[in-house]
Design a protein around this nucleic acid. Structure first.
Ligand SMILES: [Mn+2]
Ligand SMILES: [Mn+2]
Ligand SMILES: [Zn+2]
Ligand SMILES: [Zn+2]
Lengths: 136, 136
DNA sequence: TTCTAAATGAGAATGATTCCCATGACGTCC
DNA sequence: GGACGTCATGGGAATCATTCTCATTTAGAA
């Protein structure tokens, strides 16, 4: 489910795309398109907001970034390791840890087929308070 | 974490609140505030959109309804059984099945404390295609 | 270099949700 | 029952993340 997407034409290499990529890679946790746009601005990089939105969405679709939806509804991106995994996100500082739940995936398939559901997809993110934020 | 919330004053009983409650209870799957407002309209019930938004959000906060965020970002509500559980939602027709993942909760606590995270909360929803929708 | 399709960006548009605030209606205490 | 303070309502404006429009630029192939 991650290797069958063949985009006819790879995206063109532009200054904007390169700058967006390095901005995203410089992050620790998740950040929204606007966060990234602001950060780039602050660092002297001039890229249109619409381009940041478009590019991040495209990179996520291509599997180069992970996208989550924050509790208040915004979409946030982060570079991530290949392969399926989930995240443990600090509600306070945004620090993110990648986690895998070996047992979960099988569990999911079983339950889904028990209910006759197919083409299953799941969205699982954990939100908590990280160590540094709970005891400063 | 579900029994300690004591609201000082229970909400007043109004025609609007009663009508919204029955509209929600008549649903099979999840529906957004606008969906419910439309349905009520269609059924001859006149309630302001803002009131539907406020009331559903309040009922969800009070634990009377479950709220999820659909893949396209909207908030949807549904009456639900008491106790912690998750949902299996059909991407096509919206039909929803409640599921429990007995092993997951313990798994979550373990992993969270391994990473030093506390006050953990998790949001897990499954989206798939139900039996009726995949082979009609 | 030439040419064309893709990418960019500034601003307008969209759309879900929330805010504002004047008006109406619970619930309580006479 | 009636008076009253408070909460609830609703219509429309406001918000705000995201998407769209479209004129202009540019990557990349030939
Ligand atoms: Mn990741
Ligand atoms: Mn439920
Ligand atoms: Zn933290
Ligand atoms: Zn279905």
């Amino acid at each position: 489910m991650t290797s069958t997407e063949r985009s006819a034409t790879p995206p063109r290499k532009t200054r904007q795309r390169a700058e967006i990529r390095s901005a995203v890679e410089a992050l620790d946790g998740f950040a929204t398109s606007q966060d990234i746009h602001d950060r780039m601005r602050h660092d002297g990089s001039a890229v249109g907001l619409a381009t940041v939105y478009r590019t991040l969405a495209a990179m996520a679709t291509a599997g180069e970034l992970d996208a989550i939806r924050t509790p208040d509804g915004q979409v946030a991106y982060r570079t991530c390791s290949p392969g399926h995994h989930h995240h443990l996100v600090c509600r306070t500082c945004g620090r993110t840890e990648e986690i895998t739940l070996p047992g979960l995936e099988a569990m999911v398939r079983t339950i889904a087929s028990d209910h006759g559901f197919g083409e299953l997809d799941h969205e699982l993110e954990f939100f908590g308070i990280c160590g540094s934020c709970s005891r400063p």
